[in-house]
Design a binder for these strands. Structure first.
Lengths: 349, 349
DNA sequence: GTGAAAGCGCTAACAT
DNA sequence: ATGTTAGCGCTTTCAC
């Protein structure tokens, strides 16, 4: 309670220079004499002075704040991503203002408006879709948006995803080559591009291998719905139930494995092969050993930050979409086809 | 790219009123005539005007930003907490600026300084300890700090934790009553108050039950160290290894269960009982069914937000410490003593 | 009830 | 190289 706010004026007074001299000392690349700088720094240290970021932002227009909106952190993949995003941005001198939103249209729009109120320099939308008029408003005020782990055909926003289509296709080839005859799919939330692309790729791959989809259920990226989906698909006599299932993300895949083994008494992978998508930490735990497609969070984060900074630095730059390859990580939850190339990727993220 | 920034002056011009009239319309409780208000709102809507939060913050001194520093999100408990914290604060009109820090002294101090630069109204430190001179500086600039899931004897900061001591004690009673004779402990990071308090309570409880600690190892809340700890403790003939272990948090407990079962071929709870702390989502998964103490994230978040707002609203208010009771959730990883009261808590968070 | 005027703490010309 | 001046977009007296 001693000093409360110390301003550049206080420092200037103590150092016996003008207020703008102080400002220059704290502005990288501004012209200051060695001697002045020294005196100012000394005074500043004495007073515990630090520039007010907000005041600086007001005049410069640069807040160094990036707004991040997330819809749900249930999926272990998102906390990880958030952490890395925050670190990467911090390293570039930016900071993350977090906004949680349910994935409803009104909520997203409302929250986005709030983000904009903070004069953020950029926006990252993780697992959130954007109505096109909101995208338009961001564009109007010149705030770049990048979609993380979600894609939209909207040409005005950048997006970074895994190559979900290729991933789905690879799983289909893998399962078909493994000699499975009743291959099924558990879908995620149908509003998500990840769900759509993974399924599209999977079906395409099945077709290429001359297989039909044996069965399909919807887990919606939701715990309860996923349990129901697993029961509907598997609570049947052997010849009527799938012998392989591709689950749209790991979060659901782990739940499915639990039900298969502990509720239905099925052996995985003996009686059914399970493949997921994401490679969350739990997938590697010994109790699961889930074969899955790895989302390379580090690469995705790098790409996201790069896309955002590109547009911040050059507002004219065109948005673009990045797709990061998702390698298949072979573990123990799915039968490996004879002769299938053993992964040469080390089993760590 | 049409309108770029719309300011209150633009709105004022369109509405044919003064700029201050516009300001008043957007200031709850300011005196404005119905008619003026209507015209201003109409003009504002037309232009898509929204007050600039930062400019407002400059003059009012209220940024409505809360800085949150987190050290590691490995532990599933923290993402959950962050999500709830963000939601609760949003509901109060505040927003969260996230800072990641490694838990080293220099890093914490540096990051804290950055937080302060943003003129935050309050700071939440999750799983981070604070040097007392930094605490002093926060006090000096009048920014309240609350420690989340960490306690410090420092009387200048509030803290919210589970009742870790009581929790540890309960586990000791539970394990002793279960007839275990070689009870051991796997410690978390020794710098953490959670670790210290849980262990202290555990040992006290053991003493009360006339037991000695059979063995102790340190997992440090770290994956690799935890594996080593599990091997050191359990890779031994039956009579030389523990028949029960209390692990300082679930994150480590799940790793320990994996090693016990899949590396050492031990039956849990047949040959060894495992109890954790936190009740992270994974603890309830069927593959683990971990008996654990539940940290009630919702209550902890409520208390944290309340403590923070108390101090923001009344800067003179004294900091205080809150301890939330942590109920023992009985699942399948530990033998239940005959006659032990069955939990009447429903098995959901 | 409303407008004019004075800043909040800072940066960025513009002089000197 | 340094001081002076003019704002950034807003809230808040202060007169009217």
């Amino acid at each position: 309670m001693i000093d409360r706010k110390v301003t550049s004026t206080h420092v200037a007074a103590l150092a016996g220079v003008s207020q703008s001299a102080v400002s220059r000392v704290f502005t990288p690349g501004a012209p200051v004499a060695k001697a002045t700088e020294a005196r100012v720094r000394k005074a500043a240290a004495e007073l515990g002075y630090r520039p007010n970021v907000l005041a600086r932002a007001m005049v410069s227009g640069k807040t160094r704040i990036i707004g991040v909106m997330m819809a749900y952190l249930d999926n272990q993949f998102y906390p990880t991503a958030l952490e890395k995003l925050s670190e990467a941005l911090q390293a570039q001198g930016y900071h993350v203002l977090v906004f949680m939103a349910s994935n409803t249209r009104e909520d997203v729009d409302g929250v986005l408006q709030q983000i904009l109120d903070y004069q953020v320099e950029g926006i990252i939308l993780a697992s959130v879709s954007l109505s096109s008029d909101v995208a338009a408003r961001c564009r109007a005020v010149g705030v770049p948006v990048v979609l993380f782990n979600r894609h939209q055909d909207d040409k005005t926003v950048s997006s970074v995803t895994s190559d979900n289509r290729a991933g789905g296709r690879e799983v289909a080839r893998f399962l078909a080559a493994g000699g499975h005859t009743r291959i099924s799919y558990i879908a995620g939330w149908e509003g998500a591009s990840t769900q759509r692309d993974r399924e599209a790729g999977f079906c395409a791959g099945l077709a290429e291998a001359d297989r039909d989809l044996f069965a399909r259920a919807v887990g919606g990226y939701d715990n309860a719905a996923t349990k129901v989906a697993a029961f509907t698909l598997f609570n049947k006599p052997e010849d009527q139930r799938p012998d392989a299932v591709f689950v749209a993300n790991d979060h659901m895949a782990l739940i499915v494995m639990d039900i298969l083994r502990f509720e239905l008494g099925l052996d995985v992978p003996g009686e059914v092969s399970v493949v997921g998508f994401d490679d969350v930490p739990g997938a590697a735990w010994l109790a699961y050993q889930l074969t899955t497609l790895r989302q390379r969070a580090n690469r995705m984060v790098e790409a996201t930050v790069a896309a955002l900074l590109d547009q911040i630095e050059d507002p004219g730059a065109a948005p673009y979409a990045v797709r990061v390859a998702a390698p298949l990580i072979l573990r123990k939850s799915a039968r490996v086809p004879a002769g299938w190339p053993q992964s040469n990727k080390r089993d760590i993220p």
